[in-house]
Simulated assay, not measured.
Amino acid sequence: MPPHGSGKCCGDSSHQHEEPEKGIQYSLYTKINMSDLECLNESVEGSGKTVFKPWEERLERTRFVESDVDEELLFNIPFTGNIKLKGIIVIGENTDSYPSKMRLFKNRPFMTFDDTSAAPDQEFELQKDTEGELEYATKVTIFSNVNHLSIHFPGNFGDEHTKINYIGLKGEFSEAHRHGVTICNYELRPNVADHAKTMDNVSREIS
């Protein structure tokens, strides 16, 4: 059964509008805190960050991540605010290095491979996709308030190493609320009326 929201071209005239629309939908990569993003078991340090790129560059093959000692990859992805995750696209090669499963974990920073024994918030059986035609729809009710996303690829179709060229994240973004700062600002403002009442009570007690 194909994933929900398959983006395969149906041959109609509306397809010409797909590119700019997809570019907007899959722009959550701009909301990733790239300096703190990490990919565990990447063969080249920092290569995991390169697969989060503009939709227009999804077919560019020179930037990719490949696993190192085995076929597992684990991405820890912090965002600069809160996101509502609606869909994911994974592009790889039409070889056995393509990941066969994807497991998602919400708001669990600094995950390691030891932590992946826990049940994921959602998981998908993947099909090989070299063009970005298959979209995996997430459960929006679960992924509606995400500040950190971990993506675990536990295996592939039989290769010793897993290779990924592009990961696209579709959804909505909202700035993080800073309630603590607001409360502090209110507490720092003295209430003149309360101050006057206090002074009046003190003067009456003295007299």
Rank of each mutant, 00 (worst) to 15 (best):
Y98W: 11
I142A: 07
I89E: 09
A119E: 09
M111L: 04
T162D: 05
Q127R: 15
V146I: 12
T80C: 13
K139F: 14
S144F: 11
N145E: 13
Y136S: 06
I83A: 14
L149Y: 12
I89D: 06
N147P: 15
I164G: 04
T95F: 03
T112W: 12
Q127I: 15
S117L: 00
V90N: 04
L85Y: 12
F79Q: 11
F143Q: 08
D96P: 13
N82T: 15
F79S: 15
E133Y: 13
G87H: 01
D114L: 07
H161K: 06
H161F: 12
Y136K: 02
E123Y: 04
D96M: 07
P99Q: 06
E133I: 07
S100K: 03
T141Y: 07
A118Y: 01
L104M: 02
L149Q: 08
K84C: 11
V146P: 10
P120W: 01
D129F: 12
F153W: 10
K128S: 05
T112Q: 02
T141G: 13
M111C: 07
L134K: 15
S144I: 11
I91N: 06
G92I: 11
T141R: 09
N82S: 13
T95R: 01
P120H: 00
S144G: 02
T162W: 05
S100F: 06
L85D: 08
V140P: 03
T162N: 07
T116M: 00
H161P: 13
K139T: 15
E131N: 14
L134G: 05
E160R: 04
N165L: 05
G92Y: 04
V146M: 09
I77E: 14
T141A: 06
K139H: 10
T80A: 10
V146N: 11
P78W: 07
F105D: 02
T130G: 14
S150I: 08
D114G: 01
F157D: 02
G92M: 04
T130K: 09
T116R: 00
L149I: 10
F143V: 03
V146A: 08
F124G: 04
I151L: 11
G81A: 11
T95S: 00
V140T: 12
K163A: 14
N156H: 06
F124P: 08
G158C: 03
V140L: 05
D115W: 04
P154R: 10
Y136N: 13
V140M: 05
F157Q: 07
T80I: 10
G87W: 06
S144C: 05
T116F: 01
Q127D: 05
I164V: 03
Y136A: 06
I89Q: 02
T141M: 00
S150K: 05
H161Y: 14
S144P: 12
E135T: 01
I91P: 06
F153M: 09
F143P: 01
V90H: 08
K86L: 11
N147K: 14
M111R: 04
K86W: 10
M102N: 06
G92W: 06
E133G: 11
S150T: 11
S144A: 07
E125N: 12
P99G: 00
K163F: 12
F75P: 13
I142R: 09
H148F: 14
E123R: 01
I77Q: 14
L134M: 07
E131T: 10
I151M: 10
F153G: 02
N82E: 14
K84A: 13
D115F: 04
M102I: 03
P78I: 06
H152T: 04
N147T: 15
A119N: 08
L85C: 12
K86D: 13
I77C: 13
